[in-house]
Design a protein around this nucleic acid. Sequence first.
DNA 1: GAGGTTTTTGCATGCGTATGCAACAGCAAA
DNA 2: TTTGCTGTTGCATACGCATGCAAAAACCTC
Lengths: 354, 354
Amino acid sequence: MQKKVRVRRAPTETDVARLAGVSQSAVSRAFTPGASIAKNTREKILQAAQEIGYKTNLMARSLATSRSNIVALAISNLQNPFYAQVVKELSEQLRHTGRHILLFTNRDDGTADPELERVLSYQVDALILTATTASIELTTQCRQNAIPIVQINRESKISGISTVRGENQKAAEQIAQFLIAGGHKNFAFIGGTRDSNTSQIRLHAFDSHFKSLGFPPVQVAFGDYSFEGAAAATRQILSSSRPVDAIFCASDYMAFAALDVVRREFGLVVPGDISIVGVDDVPEASHSAYDLTTYSQPAAALAREAIKIIDQQIAHPGRRAMRREVRGELILRGSARLPEHSVFTIDGKKVWRS
Amino acid sequence: MQKKVRVRRAPTETDVARLAGVSQSAVSRAFTPGASIAKNTREKILQAAQEIGYKTNLMARSLATSRSNIVALAISNLQNPFYAQVVKELSEQLRHTGRHILLFTNRDDGTADPELERVLSYQVDALILTATTASIELTTQCRQNAIPIVQINRESKISGISTVRGENQKAAEQIAQFLIAGGHKNFAFIGGTRDSNTSQIRLHAFDSHFKSLGFPPVQVAFGDYSFEGAAAATRQILSSSRPVDAIFCASDYMAFAALDVVRREFGLVVPGDISIVGVDDVPEASHSAYDLTTYSQPAAALAREAIKIIDQQIAHPGRRAMRREVRGELILRGSARLPEHSVFTIDGKKVWRS
DNA sequence: GAGGTTTTTGCATGCGTATGCAACAGCAAA
DNA sequence: TTTGCTGTTGCATACGCATGCAAAAACCTC
């Protein structure tokens, strides 16, 4: 019988060496860029390796070099298409440098759970957090092992954590101005979690802008960055006794929920009765079912900056944490009433110049 | 100065051993479930480990055991919320068994690109493909190294690949019956890629059902499982000279695109003028913006079955590839005209009993 | 062709953990 | 006390690759 493919031991550098008639170290050098090895020998070795199907054992390499080429990525909210995009970008961009992603998902949007401490066991080269924040314990442990941490889209009070984010402040201000120009009078804000710094910054910039102009205070509710949560927040806002004609949501995903509730449960017309604005500009925002006016946060750029920071931190360990802001822009679509003036069409794209 | 935290070498088993006054092997045994070690010693060791913050070096363990507790996950279409859900489920369920996901994304939906061969370097325990299929080379290489492969939602002609899928056949048949009962006369189908087996099965079941009843042939177009592709497919179908009053899409994600195009570009009313049905029942399908009638494919169950298969294959290497089907059900919402009879409401959920 | 310089090669060892084997301790039965 | 057994421990080595160091080879220069 014996028809099955035998599970043979995977070939090692020693096997290649034997076939090529060189030492194991030579084989190792053949696969190490910049190592000292003659061109001829190298080619001979590569051919031998090819022949027996040799593949570097990255675990062994990682043990020897204490560098894994693995980046841990923690994410809490993969349902949000924005983060799905970020993950995709990170994955593709890291691949170009030969690195891969070890994925950690955690349910809630708060501080990353202890599970994450496993990253230390995996000897990862870096840790990226999206839609989550690192705990103090984790941060100190990472610092001791010289593992850089970058948070995407979440600030942190803990020192030693680098940050990449969109233009939270500017987005909020510009949207405030835009809504005022559009003739709106009564504003509401749907934030993520109460303690999310990102939400707070946006809220503060949004709110203080109106305050300084004498508008009534902004109504606030929190949607926990979830669809259901945002739906509840919207209900809360619309059920209050105070009038509302514009809602600014801290993410497109939550804005979708707001649109749903506003239209279906309250029978309002968008943007006739009420305007909804989001942040992120996820692909879905341009779908006609939503057609959402939003302030963009380019996922590709966020990923790029995060990786840049990681590389710098790895190259210069012990360097201070870094902060980067990635530019976005206000994207005008159909979910918010347009100002009567100052709206132009450039390259088929509507633009507002205040 | 010297204020920085020193980057000290991470503690090893030897360090723990020294502190606890035992040998390194004892420490290793203390962390190996089922190993031969006295209770007292074990506790002494665990405490010492705790004290100096010892964490197992999984790279070293993996080298010694040639088992990494890492599962490679390849995915082509993270933008589709269905797969985002699958990823999340896999990640959470694997975590319960102490395993983690090494993520590979690839652009197109065809056969996984050669990049994936890197999984062999990472000594992963298994390979899961979602919305992709493995190449022959990859499959044979994995078999040689006894790495089980499971494809979620894609069949494959290659032997040696296990499969987990929803009820493609039954879904298509039941939807066909449902649409007929709803009085529809002219049917269209939007598939994924032309060579996706999943699409083919659904199309065949859908089409042959109508044929046998004397309906005109089903119009077919392909959307490549992408939003834009599905939008184009919808345009193609609606622009043809033949009438259409029901479109069955091979995924919810594509159904969303169809809804968008049908409503905005063709000004049709859903379900008055035309009905749209999808497959998957992603969370977005229940959002009122879409309110999509669809046949469910439970992500959690798919993940569970995939992991079960992996575990069995690891426990019994060389065993034949396995095939599993996960049950779903027809979810009635507002995007398809209901039959006049046989629709009941059970637990607040509409159900159709043919 | 001798002497010097540079490049290439192999040897030996280390990375941190797992494990077969032999030694050992503790205990019960004889 | 001796014998036999079970359960625990340490020793030695393996896993596959990287790398400092010294030896060898190749190349240059005069």
